[in-house]
Amino acid sequence: MSRLSTENEALAREIIARYPRPKSALIPLLHLVQEQDGYVADDAMEHLAELVGVTPAEVLGTCSFYEMFIRHPVGKYKIDVCTNLSCQLVGGEELLHHAEQKLGIRPGGTTEDGMFTLEDVECIAACTEAPCLQVNYRYEYKLSNEDFDQLVDELRQGDRPEIPNHGTLGLVRQHIAPDRLAGIAAPEVTGTPAWFASRQPEPEAAK
């Protein structure tokens, strides 16, 4: 779609300021783009390149490495079914197969109404609650086929308001009030923190 909105650009600048070097903010910023548009568009990557001072190709280089960044529109809800060993042992693959039947798509595909994208994913750290899946990175545990059908119906009917659209991660962001910030410095700024020097019995000068 597009570049970051004015509001999101301000947020982007706040995020960048938390890092010793601007490029470090790239992954959180790509998530911000995906939160705004649902996917990562070329224009947006060019905008990020301007904001952090790298080339658009470098942004693409980072973006294309990570599985969560998608460079084309996907469904409103991305359903990620885990099929790794812990889930496979108790029915993860069967659940994925059922999901394919129910939604009429294969992993990577999106339903015609643009509601669902299906994906088979690697371990999502809920191994004791297998088989499990995530809808836009929100967990569902120990699912039977009926549970899956009910989930899809609820999502279609808008009964799961706690699950935001694809692209939005945590609904709470870190904000540091300027007067509470200790101070992020560039890596070129050397010297020990004053509090450390004063609390060391033997200064490092001894070395």
């Binding site: 938390r18 992954i27 959180p28 990570y66 599985e67 960044f69 945590g170 870190q174 540091i176 004053a194």
Partner: peptide
């Protein structure tokens, strides 16, 4: 209230084992 100042910044990844 001490002279010690430390920032902790939350960073997050994007899917890569």
């Amino acid at each position: 209230g001490s002279d010690v100042s430390i920032d902790v910044v939350l960073h997050w990844g994007a899917g890569a084992y």
